[in-house]
């Protein structure tokens, strides 16, 4: 389970507050002389705001997890409605660049496995209680934000309803390829969307994404009944 990070961007982020008033001798800097952005970085990384030393499931520490890549940094500054067109174009291009297709092309997997992944919110929590990935595989938690199977009433509404996803769109290779890209790195189509980059961030494997695609697109899936 890899969680890819643009280390160059993270290092640049780490350097940011060195030049903005944080003092090396351990004395507290003048918060009022810092920009809100610089102060926020200082509070996380230099003022013990978050337990940075804790190990993460992806094999690094919380410190790496708190650092942002370029896409996260731009999308922290606003939404699709408020950000400048140039920023959104940059995010879309970063989103596209992050997509890795399976060798031999995208194929639908097993919708039953996809259903389990859609229901499971397990994985990647750290802090007072850690999700142990050796006991259970992390899920995709689709139901937290989307309606899928019409029989499931406890569905979230942060994202659009995906009920009858395949029934409405068909199961052509074009739809399968498009849906893979959306799950893998949704910013390629929806810059600064709330949705996680399940593939690009290493939350789901290519095979798990294929299973989720089957749950969405396979005519036999309960999503399309």
């Amino acid at each position: 389970m890899k969680y890819a990070k643009v280390t160059a961007t993270a290092a640049a982020g780490a350097l940011l507050f060195v030049s903005t008033g944080a003092q090396a001798n351990g004395e507290k800097p003048d918060y009022t002389a810092m920009t809100p952005e610089a102060l926020a970085e200082y509070l996380i990384f230099e003022a013990n705001g978050i337990k940075l030393d804790q190990k993460t499931q992806e094999g690094a520490t919380v410190k790496e997890r708190q650092m942002r890549d370029e896409l996260q940094t731009i999308c922290s500054g606003g939404t699709r409605a408020t950000l400048a067109g140039d920023d959104l174009a940059k995010v879309a291009s970063l989103g596209r660049a992050g997509i890795v297709k399976p060798e031999g092309g995208v194929k639908l997997g097993d919708w039953k496995k996809g259903q389990e992944l859609a229901r499971s919110g397990f994985g990647f929590r750290v802090g007072h209680n850690n999700d142990d990935h050796s006991t259970r595989e992390p899920g995709g938690n689709c139901y937290a934000c989307h309606q899928l199977d019409p029989k499931e009433i406890a569905y979230g509404t942060l994202g659009p309803s995906l009920m009858n996803y395949g029934k409405l769109r068909g199961n052509s290779q074009a739809i399968i390829d498009y849906t893979y890209d959306v799950v893998y790195s949704p910013h390629s189509f929806f810059p600064c969307t709330h949705m996680p980059r399940f593939g690009a961030n290493g939350v789901l494997t290519q095979q798990q994404i294929a299973d989720v695609l089957a749950y969405l697109i396979d005519p036999a899936s309960p999503v399309n009944q």
Partner: peptide, 29 residues
């Protein structure tokens, strides 16, 4: 600075506080 922290997206899910708390009537599950 708190406003910046509230909107600061990070981690494997790209979430910030604003992901869940910037629209009315939305649900998780």
């Amino acid at each position: 600075a708190g406003k910046v922290l509230f909107n600061r997206r990070a981690g494997p899910m790209d979430f910030s506080c604003a992901t869940c708390h910037s629209e009315s009537g939305k649900r998780i599950r």
